[in-house]
Design a protein around this nucleic acid. Sequence first.
DNA 1: ACCCAGGGTCATA
DNA 2: TATGACCATGGG
Length: 217
Amino acid sequence: MKSPTLNAVYHLLYDTYGPQHWWPGETPFEVMVGAILTQNTAWTNVEKAIANLVSHNRLDAGKIVATRKDHVANWLRPSGYFNVKTERLKNFCRWYLEKGGFRALSRMDTAQLRVALLSVNGVGPETADDMLLYAFERPVFVIDAYTRRLFVRLGLFNGNESYDTMRVDIESILGPETVLFNEYHALIVRHAKEVCRVRPRCGNCVLLDCCPAGLLS
DNA sequence: ACCCAGGGTCATA
DNA sequence: TATGACCATGGG
């Protein structure tokens, strides 16, 4: 690992932005639904879809499984890819019920649970890890597009590493700290949304490298 | 009008 | 294994 270290980056982000209070969602199930709906999608759009589910009293695995596809698709419409996401959400809910729900799943160890989540069509590595970290509170480091971009720009990775290579490397360096992983990922996302005040969208800012307020993209 | 957004699957070489 | 097509809405 080159400088700055993972810990230094974390503290810089935390000192700049403070605690982020993630994941946005009232229950573990809502967190998991959000993880699927936010695939390659802005969170503001996901909020609308979840609000639709709530307003129709359908934020429930059994109800989602029992509801006609075209109805679910209409509620998911604002989150984009609504036909794909309807299939994925129904797949996930069917699996979730088969496995006995959250309490039953919570009894699995992290490695088993990760494999089980990945067996659901529509749940890939990042979605599974969002669920593991933010719904099941397991010490799993989420690698999303922002994380990869930031760590590559910082020189910590080449950019050709696999998802799991990056995840395991970072996990072994930081140690199995759920609360730290939670805040770190949230801070990376928060930071990515900040606009560079010097040259917006320049794409070259890395932490304090370019922007006076410590904002980089 | 264009670009991007808290990815994943499937078909093809 | 490694690309590419595809999915689709909403905000800047």
